[in-house]
């Protein structure tokens, strides 16, 4: 992991970059931003870790924990909201057996993310399963789909 991070730091120096760039590259490479990365950036670039955390926690894109193997994104945009997104999300949380404050299942199979708007409002409510779009989503069909993914990987 260290090599990857040092590479990113090199790129950052060359591009006269900024912290957002640093974090975006890290997340792109590792899927999330580990504490180790923040410590290393802080040391190498002489930036206080609090400043890096400040940026990392400000933007919803950045994750400080690893994600599950499958990523489910539920849209909570206005169009999806009026067409029942809440029911879909509650159904997914229940179906995935997610604990109250968690977004990733304990077995590391699934992460459920909520997003403000995917811009595919004409297909509301919309859910993405590993980037595949499920428009006019139906909770039972979705859970079936997810269940079959779980079986395959088991």
């Amino acid at each position: 992991m260290n090599d990857i991070l040092l590479n990113i730091i090199e790129k950052y120096r060359k591009k006269n970059g900024n912290i957002i760039f640093l974090l975006q590259e890290t997340q792109e490479a590792l899927g999330y931003i580990p504490k180790q990365a923040i410590d290393l950036f802080s040391e190498e670039l002489n930036i206080a870790p609090s400043r890096i955390y400040g940026v990392a926690t400000f933007y919803s894109q950045f994750r400080l924990k690893p994600t599950g193997k499958n990523i489910i994104v539920a849209c909570c945009g206005t169009a999806c909201h009026v067409k029942g997104a809440e029911k879909i999300i509650n159904g997914l949380r229940k179906g995935l057996e997610l604990a109250e404050d968690e977004d990733t299942t304990p077995d590391g199979e699934f992460t459920l993310e909520e997003i403000a708007c995917l811009g595919t409002c004409s297909f509301a409510p919309v859910v993405l399963v590993n980037s595949a779009v499920y428009g006019k989503a139906n909770i039972n069909a979705l859970l079936k789909k997810i269940g079959s993914k779980r079986k395959k990987s088991a």
Binding site: T78, A116, C117, G119, C121
Partner: peptide, 11 residues
Amino acid sequence: DEGDPGAFMDR
């Protein structure tokens, strides 16, 4: 940075 939920014109 089209952020309004329910808007996808710029996209």
